[in-house]
């Protein structure tokens, strides 16, 4: 630390503004460093997007609503043989009515992942191993897998789940990871 300069200013006077500028620079540095961590954290805890009062939600260029959420008691194996689950499990079916742009090619459709959540907050994915012997469609928001013909951009996507028997389902979650990893559409039951 040198003594006064030719103008008679001491070290603190000479470096005062520099010290003041350090504070916003430090804040900017912490903000920039924290931003990527914040986004990473948000991906681990995506935010829920709720549907409008009529039950429809617009997200990822699609309009969708839950048409059915019920136990699936009519599942079949190949050859139309009935599929029976063990007594301690319940199979569920979720049907989404989806409306997308009419000029979209099937391979351009954004894929989704559907899951269900029970009243205790546990989450279940579709296509579980327990249903691997049942004949079920892919519930991924692609019109090619729709059980009804896709017309005028309208089609259905159907997903199946398995939970322990006695579980109450509280919500259907639709996640479009290819579009937005920080949010998902949540249809509360």
């Amino acid at each position: 630390m040198r003594g006064p300069d030719s103008l008679g200013r001491g070290w603190w006077r000479r470096n005062g503004w520099g010290l003041v500028a350090l504070l916003p620079a430090l804040a900017l540095m912490l903000g920039a460093a924290g931003y990527s961590d914040l986004e990473f954290w948000q991906r681990g805890r995506p935010e829920a997007v709720l549907p409008a009062a009529d039950g429809t939600a617009d997200f990822a260029g699609l309009r969708m609503r839950v048409a059915e959420l019920a136990p699936a008691t009519d599942l079949k194996r190949s050859g139309d043989r009935p599929f029976v689950l063990p007594d301690n499990m319940t199979a569920w079916r979720v049907v989404l009515d989806v409306e997308g742009p009419t000029d979209l090619e099937p391979d351009q459709v954004i894929y989704c992942a559907i899951s269900i959540e029970d009243t205790a907050g546990n989450r279940y994915n579709d296509e579980p191993r327990e249903l691997s012997s049942a004949r079920t469609p892919l519930g991924n928001c692609n019109p090619e897998n729709s059980p009804v013909p896709a017309g005028s951009g309208r089609y259905q996507t159907v997903a199946h789940f398995v939970t322990p028997r006695g579980v109450e389902i509280a919500a259907v979650r639709v996640f479009f990871g290819g579009v937005d990893q920080t949010r998902y559409v949540r249809f509360d039951r």
């Binding site: 301690n88 546990n122 994915n125 191993r129 327990e130 398995v162 939970t163 322990p164």
Partner: peptide, 8 residues
Amino acid sequence: GLTMQPGL
């Protein structure tokens, strides 16, 4: 290779 669902 085995994805487990909660409670199962």
